[in-house]
């Protein structure tokens, strides 16, 4: 990843998270959706630690 494509990557990760949460809200009464969303969110959480945090936390810092 280079500097110039960081921002879109962060955006995509956050959008995926939002979509999974939306899916869970919409169809989470189905156990298969609920538990698979839980697993997907855990994977997305790692992308947040690996990438998103670097931008959001350091941005807060410079703000």
């Amino acid at each position: 990843m280079t500097r110039s494509d960081d921002a879109p990557v962060v955006e995509i990760i956050l959008r995926i998270k939002e979509e999974i949460l939306k899916l869970r809200k919409t169809a989470g009464h189905l156990p298969c959706v609920d538990r698979n969303c839980e697993r997907l969110l855990a994977g997305v959480a790692m992308l947040e630690l690996d990438i998103v945090d670097v931008y959001t936390l350091l941005q807060d810092k410079s703000a």
């Binding site: 697993r39 959480a45 790692m46 630690l49 690996d50």
Partner: peptide
């Protein structure tokens, strides 16, 4: 560990 924590261990 929650599943998210376990994913963290793995990561």
């Amino acid at each position: 560990d929650t599943w998210r924590d376990w994913e963290w261990w793995t990561e």
